[in-house]
């Protein structure tokens, strides 16, 4: 019994220590004055790596999720003779929830895991140490551009995801199942509010982008520099990011749309 309590206590202190280390790490990355001349090319390179190269999976997933929403929405709404509201349903679902959340989950799986593995491998092959010994701070040179790239790329990817999803929903609802096109777009335009829905969705994706990128770079930087350590860190990135996104989504939704 005493051992169990001690073990529980140890887990708690380990968690607090880990959060503290991640916080100090973040402060180290974000501190200091940015240097646009050297920093901008590094940021662009990472934006390409985590943003542009994630486009394929985002577009394909957005298209299919939009199409599924169109199909399910039509089946449910036609029972009540309200299939004309399908555009409104798809847009609100995507812009408020599925766009930011699914993009973040896909981002964690594709770009987050790649970031962790890359940084972990740089640590294992002493590239980060050699940078330090050359008088170059790896937090500024390696970590910061990757963190900012995730932060910037996520909202853009979420917007693209929602746009493609709405188009996919139209393909099924309008082109295939015969919902009137004017109703599809008109109802959507009438019911989706720019500030309440679109901006809140973007705020969610900004938060998710920050959290996912932070978890990914921290796990890579803090990993045990062995193949098993990198593998474990990559897994942790995907698991922790997914849990953080789902948990934060509930909190943000409660704050944004709760109206208690």
């Amino acid at each position: 019994m005493i051992d169990r309590i001690a073990s529980f206590g140890r887990s708690g202190t380990d968690l607090v220590v880990s959060i503290g280390r991640a916080g100090r790490f973040l402060a180290g990355v974000l501190s200091g004055v940015p240097r646009p001349i050297t920093g901008f090319p590094l940021l662009m390179k990472q934006l390409y790596s985590v943003g542009v190269l994630s486009l394929a999976i985002i577009v394909v997933s957005g298209l299919f999720i939009g199409m599924v929403l169109g199909l399910q929405g039509y089946t449910i709404l036609s029972d009540f003779g309200s299939e004309a509201a399908i555009g409104q349903m798809i847009a609100l679902t995507l812009v408020r929830e599925l766009g930011p959340v699914v993009t973040a989950l896909l981002f964690a799986g594709r770009a987050g895991s790649a970031l962790t593995a890359e940084i972990g491998l740089m640590k294992a092959t002493e590239q980060l140490s050699s940078m330090e010994m050359m008088g170059v701070d790896p937090l500024r040179r390696v970590i910061a551009p990757r963190l900012w790239a995730g932060f910037i790329a996520m909202p853009v990817l979420a917007i693209i995801f929602s746009m493609v999803g709405i188009w996919g929903g139209m393909l099924v609802g309008v082109e295939w199942l015969g919902v009137f096109e004017g109703s599809y777009w008109g109802n959507m335009q009438a019911s989706v509010d720019f500030w309440d829905d679109v901006v809140n969705g973007i705020i969610k994706s900004v938060v998710f982008g920050f959290v996912c990128a932070w978890i990914a770079v921290y796990q890579g930087y803090d990993c045990v520099p062995t193949s098993a350590g990198i593998s474990s860190a990559t897994t942790k990135t995907v698991v922790y990011s997914s849990l953080a996104v789902l948990g934060l989504d509930f909190v943000l939704t409660a704050v944004m749309f709760g109206n208690f």
Binding site: E126, M133, V136
Partner: peptide
């Protein structure tokens, strides 16, 4: 970090930056 500019270190693994060519590795500092 400023002080380390007058130090050089050869790591056991070499620790070259794998995304840069030989030329760019030497030019990096």
């Amino acid at each position: 970090y400023k002080f380390r500019e007058k130090m050089g270190m050869l790591f056991q693994s070499g620790a070259l930056f794998t995304d840069l060519s030989v030329y760019e590795n030497v030019a990096f500092p």
